[in-house]
Design a protein around this nucleic acid. Sequence first.
DNA 1: CAGTATCCACCGAGATACTG
DNA 2: CAGTATCTCGGTGGATACTG
Lengths: 133, 133
Amino acid sequence: MDTADRPDAAARRGPCAAIPAEQMGFVRQILDRIGDKWSMLVIAVLDTGPLRYTDLQREVPGISQRMLTLTVRQLQQDGLVTRTAHAEVPPRVEYALTPLGRSLHQIVTSLITWVADHHGQIREHRTNAATTP
Amino acid sequence: MDTADRPDAAARRGPCAAIPAEQMGFVRQILDRIGDKWSMLVIAVLDTGPLRYTDLQREVPGISQRMLTLTVRQLQQDGLVTRTAHAEVPPRVEYALTPLGRSLHQIVTSLITWVADHHGQIREHRTNAATTP
DNA sequence: CAGTATCCACCGAGATACTG
DNA sequence: CAGTATCTCGGTGGATACTG
């Protein structure tokens, strides 16, 4: 392995205390997916129970049909949400969190709560940084 | 406000239990930033203390100079990291988490831990979904 | 060492229109 | 109602080269 001669602190503790080097790739990959523009919000919004397609679209303001479709499909393939099509007319399709999705949901909620709590501070910093370049 | 005539469930509980409608915009905006390709990893990697530019680059495998520079600058403007340039030669610049950044770091760590714990399950689901379309 | 500058490819994502 | 199809644009992000 080419890390054999790495001399310093990095070698001791790896790239990050929380991430073994071998998993970094996966972590990056999955972080990319759930950290994409919409996934977190969709997951967040499913916390109160199953939602239909149109409801999702309303609850996540600004999402396009395309992106909603792609996002839920990804989430479904990743086993984070279920898609249940009821054979009725008019069609009804409901999306819900799987247990896996629910476990992620908790973290997403923490993140969103954090943002809600601190976006004031962040905005301050931003304007400060902008006015004092 | 144009939500006055909204009739149904969404009106009762808002777009998401965790997100008041008015904050959705901010939340989206900030989630976009910290959920971008690199910010989380940079924050994660700063957990063990200040790091220099080159160290950051090594600890976050795959990041380009451009992206590292952009990312730390954003994080700095948002008040999540500090940049300390030591007037020496050769120059030494250290990046560290602010208290604000540290509070976010905890959540990021949870997220990364979750991913590390569950990426196996996710990969399973993905391959299942791929083989049974 | 710690960046900036520039160029470019890719694809994320919106708009629009159509379908089962 | 719940999508799919297609087109298109803009920005993100990578590679490379240069600088204080």
